[in-house]
Design a protein around this nucleic acid. Sequence first.
DNA 1: CTAATAGTGTCTGTGAGACAATATGGT
DNA 2: ACCATATTGTCTCACAGACACTATTAG
Lengths: 259, 259
Amino acid sequence: MNQEEELQKQSYDVNKYRTPDGAPADIVMFTITKRERKMMTKMLPIYELKVMLIRRRKWPCAGLWALPGGFAGENESMHGAARRELKEETGVDGGHLEYLGVYSKPGRDPRGWIISHAFFALVAESVLEKRRAADDAEAVGLFTIHEALNELELAFDHRDIIEDAYRRIQLQMLQTTIAKQFLPEHFTLGELYQVIKTVVPDFEEPNFIRKITSTRSRKGILEEVRDENGKKLSSNQYSQRPAQLYRFTDIVPKLSIYT
Amino acid sequence: MNQEEELQKQSYDVNKYRTPDGAPADIVMFTITKRERKMMTKMLPIYELKVMLIRRRKWPCAGLWALPGGFAGENESMHGAARRELKEETGVDGGHLEYLGVYSKPGRDPRGWIISHAFFALVAESVLEKRRAADDAEAVGLFTIHEALNELELAFDHRDIIEDAYRRIQLQMLQTTIAKQFLPEHFTLGELYQVIKTVVPDFEEPNFIRKITSTRSRKGILEEVRDENGKKLSSNQYSQRPAQLYRFTDIVPKLSIYT
DNA sequence: CTAATAGTGTCTGTGAGACAATATGGT
DNA sequence: ACCATATTGTCTCACAGACACTATTAG
């Protein structure tokens, strides 16, 4: 650094300006719960998209439900803070964690100028159940997206965040292969279809199997699971007739409105 | 607020924690320049995707090229700050301005703990030229994306930001109708094709006109321009044979890998 | 046999892809 | 006539969409 630079540096005062009072990472944790239907005969379970919320104990917004999260420290990135929080809350390290956006509307947090960073995570149902058992069950809730948005009083602007996250996960569900986060390694097309419909209720594709098993454009994102002898594997967990098992390949589909 | 809440509030000290030293909004301003080729006969112009950069005068990173931007204030959202900066820099109020992401890697800014918010904007070439004329031309540069990424020394982590913005605009170009930001109200399919190819060089569609003018799935995003008598309008600005003019409709295309 | 899910047959229409052929109008 | 660009003709094959039909197996 030359002399002039050194001079400029010394004349810079970081405290000259009003600075933010904190930058938390808040995480919308989604899971899909499966509820077996009690029936004589095998049936597909009922799937529901759920969100984990925490009941706040302290000011501000004490008593309201809020997204899990916490303030980032000086020596971590926002993404790092989110990963840390996710691990603290669920014990999960890894899994799908994705940045959603920044929430910075003035006055959104009575503590001051708090710029919040929202993420969303997709975790297995079992993980959240564990978390719920470990902690005070009173303070941890798993709600359907509908309950969270329409029936709960939420802290800060967390309703906006959850709405945005819901829109985003619906987009992703149709445009990427995140469905795999909600499915076992091997799954039937019936399961895949149910998972998609759970996240995107409007999704209707009467000929789903037909399309998924043909189609040049989609070709490659799914492949049949075979055993070591090359024989196709199937499952009859949810149906009398065994269904072919599939897995996602590593192919990343590219979509375009002009192609 | 009841008594207990009041108590908790008073015991909360915002200064108890280390807080960020600032939250700037940085904007990647894209434009597409058109260069007419000097030829006897009419030809399509050469299109280039460019980025506006500013040469920093002060510490830190004095002398390096940086994205235009500035710190957000306490009474504005990050998006508001970006809109304000965009207006200050270009005079443009409106246009396409979109959030890109947060850049918060520790040590990214020698001034301290600075959490930067990147946006990208698409503006008309004429606007940036005006800006360049108004200001000290030395300090404002318009570079091709290739120059910016490979030949320039950039401040902070702005290279990462520009790379991310480039990836994002390429995605958007194929999956949304942002191409309209780079086109006049009415345009020919040749122009549209060139704009797409400028942003996404890999895009190859030999039968472009064919597909765009048929196709069930894309149907609706474009429509022919007609005069008040319903006669189709055409332009021969870039070709001898006049070409049909089109405009984007308001239809938002929905893409899915499963449909 | 029945119930519930998995998967195929069949038929029609239309788009994709390739490429050749033709249209337009300034120079 | 020539050129660069715009647009249509033509042909084949694959897929979309609809819907009825068959397959599988526990109970």
